[in-house]
């Protein structure tokens, strides 16, 4: 299976294994008791993979948007889409994978630091346009945003200093309206 290219940076894509491809699925669901549980439960019950899942309210108070990054061959992805559509609380399901879309993830990284290593860490932060959000004599906490590759890269760069804790939001995504770089 061919890898799908995306023109813009920050659009995550990776071929995991032959025929198995990573898909970013955007879901609009009724913001109702148990709706999230039903979706998470569906993935568990059918044995579908979840690489990342994020959920939050949308511009309308009674709906939530979920972004699920999952993997599977074409047949599995087709079933995932159908099964998600089948849930009564699901309003809309879109597989963004073959569209142009923006994908972002936020990460908080608490890294060990000493007076000697601090400037180097801050330099890395600057390169990645990350912000320092907390500081202590022995640590720095950075906030970085970007596509999956960028987030992976900053974590990799900071690893040698000693990572204390990491929290990632999981990816959120929206379809692009303007076809091209912004």
């Amino acid at each position: 299976m061919a890898q799908v290219e995306h023109s813009s940076s920050g659009d995550g894509h990776a071929v995991v294994a032959e025929h198995v491809q990573r898909h970013t699925i955007s879901l609009l669901v009724e913001n109702k008791f148990g709706a999230f549980n039903r979706i998470a439960g569906l993935f568990a019950a059918k044995g579908y993979n979840i690489d990342s899942l994020s959920v939050g309210p949308t511009e309308e108070e009674d709906t939530s948007r979920m972004t699920i990054v999952t993997r599977g061959d074409d047949q599995v992805i087709e079933q995932i889409m159908k099964q998600l559509n089948k849930l009564i609380d699901t309003i809309k399901v879109v597989d963004l994978t073959f569209e142009s879309f923006v994908e972002r993830e936020l990460v908080l990284i608490k890294v060990q630091s000493t007076p000697t290593s601090r400037p180097e860490i801050m330099q890395i932060a600057e390169i990645f346009r990350a912000k320092v959000v907390d500081i202590s004599p022995k640590s720095l906490t950075l906030e970085a945003t970007g596509g999956q590759q960028k987030v992976d890269a900053i974590i990799k760069m900071l690893k040698p200093f000693g990572l204390k804790e990491i929290a990632r939001t999981g990816r959120v995504a929206l379809k692009r309206e303007f076809q091209g770089e912004v």
Binding site: Q75, E78, Q79, K82, Q83, N85, K86
Partner: peptide
Amino acid sequence: DPSAISKNVQ
């Protein structure tokens, strides 16, 4: 049921 189609057999 759309999900019954191509579930087991293409």
